[in-house]
Lab assay of single mutants.
Amino acid sequence: LQAFIKTLTGKTFTVEMEPSDTIENLKAKIQDKEGIPPDQQRLIFAGKQLEDGRTLSDYNIQKESTLHLVL
């Protein structure tokens, strides 16, 4: 599935991932794409901060969901 990552500066980019991917995997993909170390990334979806060990499906993240990236 493709999801949108929106930063506080208003920049939006897309990442490809599977519902079974962990938040940790997602942070690694963001690092590959944007060069931001995972330990500096905080991802917010539906008002909740996402925990590394959980999966996208745990948070009911669907295709074309928008996640907010806070540094």
Rank of each mutant, 00 (worst) to 15 (best):
L1E: 04
L1Q: 06
Q2R: 14
A3C: 15
A3S: 03
A3I: 15
F4Y: 12
F4W: 10
F4Q: 10
I5W: 03
I5K: 02
K6A: 09
K6T: 14
K6C: 11
K6P: 02
K6W: 09
K6V: 15
T7S: 06
T7K: 05
L8D: 14
L8S: 15
T9F: 12
T9G: 13
G10H: 04
K11W: 10
T12R: 07
T12Q: 08
F13D: 00
F13P: 00
F13Y: 04
F13I: 09
T14M: 13
T14K: 10
V15L: 11
V15M: 07
V15Y: 03
V15S: 00
V15T: 02
V15R: 00
V15Q: 01
E16P: 08
E16F: 13
M17Q: 02
E18Y: 14
E18Q: 13
E18T: 12
P19C: 06
P19G: 09
P19D: 10
P19M: 13
P19A: 10
P19L: 13
T22C: 03
T22A: 03
I23A: 02
I23G: 00
E24Q: 11
E24L: 15
N25V: 12
N25K: 14
N25D: 12
L26W: 01
L26E: 01
L26N: 01
L26M: 06
L26K: 00
K27V: 01
K27G: 01
K27S: 00
K27N: 00
K27C: 02
K29H: 06
K29G: 02
K29S: 04
K29D: 01
I30A: 01
I30F: 01
I30C: 01
Q31Y: 15
D32K: 12
D32N: 10
D32V: 13
K33S: 10
K33A: 11
E34I: 15
E34W: 14
I36Y: 15
P37K: 06
P37G: 03
P38S: 14
P38M: 15
P38Q: 13
D39K: 10
D39I: 08
Q40D: 08
Q40F: 09
Q40N: 09
Q40V: 11
Q41N: 01
R42I: 15
L43P: 00
L43C: 01
L43R: 00
L43A: 00
I44D: 05
I44P: 01
I44H: 11
I44G: 02
F45R: 02
F45T: 02
F45E: 01
F45A: 03
A46N: 15
A46W: 08
A46S: 09
A46P: 01
A46K: 15
A46T: 05
A46E: 15
G47T: 03
K48P: 02
K48W: 07
Q49I: 15
L50P: 02
E51M: 06
E51S: 06
E51D: 09
E51N: 06
E51A: 06
D52S: 07
D52M: 04
D52L: 04
D52K: 03
D52G: 06
D52R: 03
D52T: 06
G53P: 06
G53D: 11
R54E: 06
R54Q: 09
T55P: 07
T55A: 07
L56V: 13
L56H: 01
L56Y: 04
S57C: 04
S57F: 09
S57D: 09
D58E: 11
Y59S: 02
Y59K: 01
Y59P: 01
Y59Q: 03
N60V: 07
I61L: 08
I61F: 08
Q62P: 11
Q62R: 09
Q62C: 05
Q62F: 11
K63P: 15
K63W: 10
K63E: 12
K63S: 15
K63F: 11
E64F: 15
S65T: 10
S65V: 15
S65R: 06
T66Q: 08
T66M: 09
T66E: 09
T66I: 15
L67A: 02
L67F: 07
L67H: 01
L67E: 01
L67R: 00
L67K: 00
H68E: 11
H68L: 15
H68N: 07
H68G: 03
L69W: 01
L69Y: 01
L69D: 00
L69E: 00
V70M: 12
V70C: 07
V70Y: 13
L71T: 10
L71E: 07
